[in-house]
Every structure is written in C-alpha cells, then in structure tokens.
Amino acid sequence: MEIQILNWLQSLHTPILDKIMQLITHLGDVGIIWIILTIVMILIPKTRKSGVIMAAALIVDVILCNVILKNLIARVRPYDVNTAVQVLVAKPKDFSFPSGHTAASFASVTALYLAGEKKLWKPALALAILIAFSRMYLYVHYPTDILGGVIFGSLSAWIGYQCSKKMFNIFQVERP
C-alpha cells in the first residue's frame, strides 16, 4: 500500500515541482535549518530559553531517532524496493524509519510550541510539513516513516522540554 502511495506521488512530478521539493528537502538535511534557528535563538537573550529547549529537543531526537530507532528497525528505503524510480537527490545511506528530516522538523516545531513561541511555531509547522512531504515526493521515505518522524520528533521535543524545565529549576532560571 505504501509503495502505491509513493508511486502515485510520482505522477505529480513536474520539472519545477522537482526543483522546489529538492530545495525544501535540503533545508532539512542534517537538520540544518533547525540547527541554525536554534543557534540564532540562543544568541538572542529574549529567545535564549526557547533556543535551549530546541537544542534539548534536537539532541534527544538525534539519539532516539538516528542512533537508536533507525538501527534497531533497519527498514529498507523505498528506492531499494522499487529500483525503477529515479531518485532526484543523493540516496541516503542510513535506514528509512523514522524519517530523520521529519523527526528533526517536528522536534523543533513542538519545542517552539512548548516554549510558547507563538509567532514562530506556526510558520515552522508549515515548513516541517513541506519537508515531510518532500521526503515522500522524492521517494526516500514511506508514509509510515513520516508518521514515525512526526511522533518520535514530537516525543523528543517533550522529553527535551521536560529536561530543560529541570535544568532551569536547578540553575534558578525562569521558564519561558
């Protein structure tokens, strides 16, 4: 069923949409857009606590999703199952579940939401959804990889938020 969904997405391809999806997916490569946002927020005193929460969420995400789950589940990528599809990006060398791009994106969005960043979390959510969709469009993840990324990324943010709250209490820092 999942391959059928991905194959249907292949019918949406146009040269312009291909370029847009490649650009969007590259924003999520190694979580770069979220790492940059985290660093900027940490550097600005007004958003420093939110930046710390995002950093904690991304650290938990890397450990949970990229180190533990991907290797434990070891799911083969869709382009290795259907070799007839031409992949438009460099083929990732790691396993498929959960989607790391999606997990980092939703860890960041959820961290922003939990930190009370009302102006940031909504546009970040829109970007996270686009990044997640691009991973299926580009045939590098199954829909359940994306769903797993949403769930485990959000869980990572919650864990990161709880750890940050404890740290803020230990160091007598006001929570956001």
Rank of each mutant, 00 (worst) to 15 (best):
E117H: 05
P143N: 13
A107F: 00
C163M: 15
W121E: 13
L125H: 04
R135A: 03
G160L: 11
A157R: 10
C163K: 09
F171V: 08
S105R: 13
V150C: 04
T144K: 08
D145E: 09
S156Q: 08
S164H: 02
G149M: 05
N169D: 12
E117N: 11
A128G: 10
T144S: 14
T144H: 09
D145K: 08
P123S: 12
Y139I: 09
F133M: 10
A115F: 01
I129N: 15
A104H: 11
R135S: 01
S156K: 12
Y139D: 06
N169F: 02
A128H: 03
I170D: 00
A111H: 02
A128D: 01
Y139N: 11
G160T: 11
A157W: 00
L120Y: 09
I159T: 02
C163A: 14
A104I: 02
Q172I: 01
E117R: 13
V150K: 05
D145W: 03
H141T: 11
Y139K: 12
K166D: 05
F171R: 15
W121R: 13
Y139G: 03
K118H: 08
A111P: 00
W158L: 15
S156P: 11
S105G: 11
S105C: 04
R135Q: 07
W121N: 14
A103G: 07
W121G: 07
K166M: 11
K118L: 06
Q172S: 12
L130P: 07
S154T: 10
V150H: 01
S134V: 10
I159H: 04
F106I: 13
S154A: 10
I129Q: 15
L147E: 02
L125R: 09
L120H: 03
F133Y: 14
A111W: 00
Y142P: 01
V140S: 05
V140K: 14
L112Q: 05
R135T: 03
L130G: 11
P123M: 15
S134R: 06
Y161E: 04
I131A: 02
Y137W: 07
I170A: 07
L127I: 14
A126T: 08
S154H: 04
L125M: 12
A126M: 12
S105W: 00
L112P: 01
Y161T: 05
A103C: 04
I131N: 05
G153V: 01
G148I: 08
K165I: 14
H141Y: 12
S105A: 15
T144Q: 05
A111V: 01
Y137T: 00
M136H: 11
L130F: 06
A126I: 13
L114W: 07
I129M: 15
F152Y: 11
G160F: 08
I170S: 01
P143R: 15
Q172R: 13
K165V: 14
C163D: 02
G149W: 00
L138Q: 08
T102D: 01
L114N: 09
L114K: 15
A104Q: 11
P143D: 09
C163F: 10
G149C: 07
L127M: 12
V109W: 01
V140L: 13
F133W: 07
M136V: 00
N169C: 09
L125S: 04
L130T: 05
I159W: 00
A157D: 02
